[in-house]
Design a protein around this nucleic acid. Sequence first.
RNA 1: GCUCGAGUGGUGGAAUUGGUAGACACGUUGGACUUAAAAUCCAAUGGACAUUAGUCCGUGCGGGUUCAAGUCCCGCCUCGAGUACCA
Length: 946
Amino acid sequence: MSYDFRQIEDKWQKEWAEKGTFEAQNNSDKPKYYVLDMFPYPSGAGLHVGHPLGYIASDIYARYKRHKGFNVLHPMGYDSFGLPAEQYAIQTGQHPAITTAANIKRYREQLDKIGFSFDWSREVRTSDPDYYKWTQWIFIQLFNSWYNKEADKAEDIDTLIALFEQDGNNGVKAVCDEDVVAFTADQWSGFTPKKKQEILLQYRLTYLAETEVNWCPALGTVLANDEIVNGVSERGGHTVIRKKMTRWSMRISAYAQRLLDDLQKVDWPQPLKDSQVNWIGRSEGASVTFHTIPSGDVKKSYPIEVFTTRPDTIFGASFMTLAPEHELVSLITTPEQEKEVAAYVEATAKRSERDRMADVKTISGAFTGAYASHPFTKEPVPVWIGDYVLAGYGTGAVMSVPCGDQRDYDFAKHFNIPIPNIFEGIDISEEAFADKEKTIIANSDFLNGLPYKKAVKLAIYELEKLEQGKGKINYRLRDAVFSRQRYWGEPFPVYYVEGMPQMIESKYLPIELPEVEKYLPTETGEPPLGNATTWAWNTVEHTVVSNKMIDHRTVFPLELNTMPGWAGSSFYFNRYMDPNNENEIFSQDAINYWQDVDLYIGGSEHATGHLLYSRFWQKFLFDKGVVPKEEFAKKLINQGMITGTSAFIYRIEGENTLVSKNLIGDRSVQPLHVDVSLVNPSDELDLVKFKENPLYADFKEAKFLLEDGVYIVGREVEKMSKSKYNVVSPDSICEDFGADSLRLYEMFLGPLEQSKPWNTAGITGVHSFLKKMWRLFHSGEEGAFNVTDDEATADNLKTLHKTIKKVEEDIENFSFNTSVSSFMICVNELSSQKCTSKSILEPLAILVSPYAPHIAEELWSKLGHKASIATAEFPKYEGKYLVESSKEYPISFNGKMRFKMELPADMSAADIESAVMAHKKTQEQLQGRTPKKVIVVPGKIVNVVG
RNA sequence: GCUCGAGUGGUGGAAUUGGUAGACACGUUGGACUUAAAAUCCAAUGGACAUUAGUCCGUGCGGGUUCAAGUCCCGCCUCGAGUACCA
């Protein structure tokens, strides 16, 4: 019987499922280990061979840890809310829940075929009401919390109310809206309930705010910054414009510093940490307030607050620049400048974000006619507006120091604004000087002669004395918009009374998504949930009205937006610990046992989205005492992307003729994607199948220009995608070579973290390794199972232990590719040694089992074991079998102090030692000195360092 | 522009901490077994000269440190990823 992978794989996959082999217990004497994959969005296209790469790696590690005696949690689920299902619903009327369920079924079938050791009893789906009940619950917790800067943590909103009652908001150090108004305890108690709610909303960790949002008209929805790439929507590439809307926001900015600091606590890839650091964008400096000088036309003085990282250069500030959107622009502009300013503001508003970013070189701006008084010199400083100042960063206004900042310099040159030099011994006639380290300040009153750091300190000190500034740390990280005008997302547990948001009590959760007739926004521009009016009323009736006295005529009673895609994925890793708990998000026992994720594997594209939001929610839940760890994942690995290798045919322009790649010459041709399944590994197109394929009906009558009778296609590496016809599905690989071959091959392809193109050609290598391994256990014409109790030879043991050592090291270092090589060497050696010893083959099966679990399991059972190989003990490495030796040799001396020495055969470690000593002596005679260091390279050579 | 990362045979990639460069695999060539093919097995496979031994050159380029450099240092080149008027 030969290696029948189909039969073996079917058998064991069934067995694992039936016996629940991989179900983890929430308590155990064994140490715990939590291995997690980023759960997928179940798209309609199914899996291609690129998707399982990370899953295979994590599965190998999970299986390895089980062999090492750990109680392993290795779950899988689906991030099943999302835009594609909704857009499909808009087009076809098919309910997203139905398409999503179908897609999940397909995903599950595909995943099962690969033989993963997932604990499916813990599956979660973010679109499942039993799951999003807890997404809604966390939202309520966030609403009922504020961020206490003094304690540096989130606290219950009641503690804030207590503070207000005691002493107003004087002395309350909170992260809150910028425009909170001061009030006393007396004033607080005098406020109407509505007024109190308005104030509290400015402190809550999730709050309603009228913000400028990224509105995508084509998708009819709001997008987060990270959903926009190069000014267009990530999905679909549609135009995005700025628009003011009332949205829910998450006060993630409260956690900016902790999100930054705690990166040191986690073992995550440096590039990923770098991009989070960059995204958070901490910069230290000062906020400085300039006051405008009243004039005949504008009688009032307005304070303009700016943020600068260079307060030391304040004496070089020769003008100020506001973002065109800045709220003071209309207030301070003088009548004679009004026309010009209005025209400029309108022009920038028209330009999309994309245009503005694409063209950063063109300098534009307008003078407002206003002047502000310099804090120290009291000289008038002209106030300009310019689109190089961004409304969304800092205060949307800058003090412009042309001698120290290239953008200010260019602006000043363009508009003929003076460029005073405040740097000692620096020529600024050509460009600005921005080197902090070489800065010595001049022409700056009390700052003269000081270097950068000292000047910054003194400038801030003096500004504080004038009450016109203070040291400040600014973050680029903005609060995250949390509302989407979509159907297929979590509904908010929110209703409104007199326009103020109220939380529905937790006991009524989940607030389930209603059925709607249409998945588009309503005709009045409300979100899709606005189509479900009975739902809205019934929900309020059921959860609120029957319990409280609420006026039925309150305007729209329920929140009609839904939550964004990242809501459900920001805590799922914790829910896996106790996924079927109906009463709690998870039991304290479960979370205290599993604690956090030990190994998390997923793509780097989530660096500033999912991974940042998840850290934020984890920190919040930590503050509230819900989770015991402040970071949710100790170690993280980014697997690389497997790209596709597209194939091209070439049609001669204007003719129905297809020309083989190498015959194109200087003909003008149109390259067309051709399905990669029609091309063999030698790049030859299968002309028969090609002509039969209805996709290529246009070419039925086409002429072919062939080389040596075959059509050679062109190749190019691209992202795997249906539209490029370069998708290779794992199912076809499993069908042809088996899941074990697929698993081994994906690992063998190259380092896990590296991107690489898929190329099916090489898979025969790993496949024949499996066949060879099978033959170690089976012999004769019929291939009967054949393992003996023979004692292992020294060579056998050496081969085995060498492999144990290598494979163990490789797994610990996540170098899975090289361990596959080790398996091949091991099997080659054992087969040339004709090893049939059970004492060798049994540990070998365990060694291979994380990589090729089906064949290992089969052999394990044939060796007479009743229990699954999954928990068999990983074999121990014994170094004594590894002493290497080889043949005789002459000692040579090449004049460069390098000596080669081959060691005699059958030498023990002690013999090698004495040979080295003898060698040292020889060298002493030759050189007249003793070598300091001797290095033995296993096998053949001794190098002596003199 | 800035920040990371990477450049090794025909190809994917090995190379422990500075210690035999090219493991392992694909591909190619030759051979065995076959009527034949497939499968399997064996051998060769960085380049050049020599074909018996052998010698020289070789890890993007140019320098340097070292007995010894793919690996460390300095200066370049190329490619990839992320990010970008962030004051």
